[in-house]
């Protein structure tokens, strides 16, 4: 198998984690997502949009995650608390991108890939339309939800030596802690 084929397969496999992590995270905040087929338009339409971008790096892999939605969508992610100001939306959406990449990181830990995360940057804009990547290791995922559409993009650049291991079972002694887990010492 060529290096490029191996990277393409690893990237495709990581996308399954991206979709799983996205649906699980938003579900935990009472926002069920349904994954749309590839090729869905990355267009929020008219109105205010919000995007949060967070970089990561690991052994022979580096890249970024982008979370994109309407401002209305973002404001509904914290039930019971009014999220109105720019500062609140920025904090909330940035924390979601952080939790999403953290969730992907924990899933990849089970496959022997250790990622370090950067700090999220959040931006606002009108009629946000981000281009569809033309490279092979960058993909948008579109999801529908009761609050509107949300988009997740995961970019990865691989260097020679990158290996995506087989998934460790949850019962493995050194398996990472899962989301929602509480450990008392």
């Amino acid at each position: 198998m060529s290096v490029n084929t191996a990277f393409a397969e690893a990237f495709a496999s990581i996308q399954l984690h991206v979709v799983k992590a996205s649906t699980e995270l938003f579900e935990a905040y009472d926002t069920p997502l349904s994954h749309l087929q590839d090729g869905a338009s990355i267009d929020l339409g008219a109105g205010d949009g919000v995007a949060s971008i967070i970089g990561y790096a690991g052994s022979n892999i580096r890249g970024a995650l982008v979370l994109l939605a309407s401002r209305e969508f973002a404001a509904k992610l914290q039930p019971g608390i009014d999220v109105v100001s720019d500062a609140e939306i920025r904090d909330l959406f940035g924390e979601f991108s952080n939790m999403l990449l953290g969730r992907i990181k924990n899933q990849l830990l089970r496959r022997s890939v250790v990622l370090m995360l950067a700090t999220p940057t959040t931006l606002f804009g009108k009629e946000l339309r981000l281009p569809t990547p033309t490279g092979g290791t960058s993909t948008w995922h579109a999801f529908d939800s009761p609050h509107g559409r949300v988009f997740v993009r995961f970019d990865a650049t691989f260097d020679p030596g990158f290996v995506l291991g087989d998934e460790e079972p949850d019962s493995a002694e050194d398996a990472p802690a899962a989301e929602g887990d509480l450990m008392m010492f």
């Binding site: 995270l25 935990a28 905040y29 952080n98 939790m99 990449l101 953290g102 969730r103 990181k105 924990n106 830990l109 250790v114 050194d174 398996a175 990472p176 802690a177 899962a178 989301e179 929602g180 887990d181 509480l182 450990m183 008392m184 010492f185």
Partner: peptide, 26 residues
Amino acid sequence: TTEGQPELIQKAKALGAKGWIVKPFK
């Protein structure tokens, strides 16, 4: 935290942390 890395958990435990919860929390 969003972190679930066993090495970090062990480090916190060694420093006397009493618990570790992975976000999102219940």
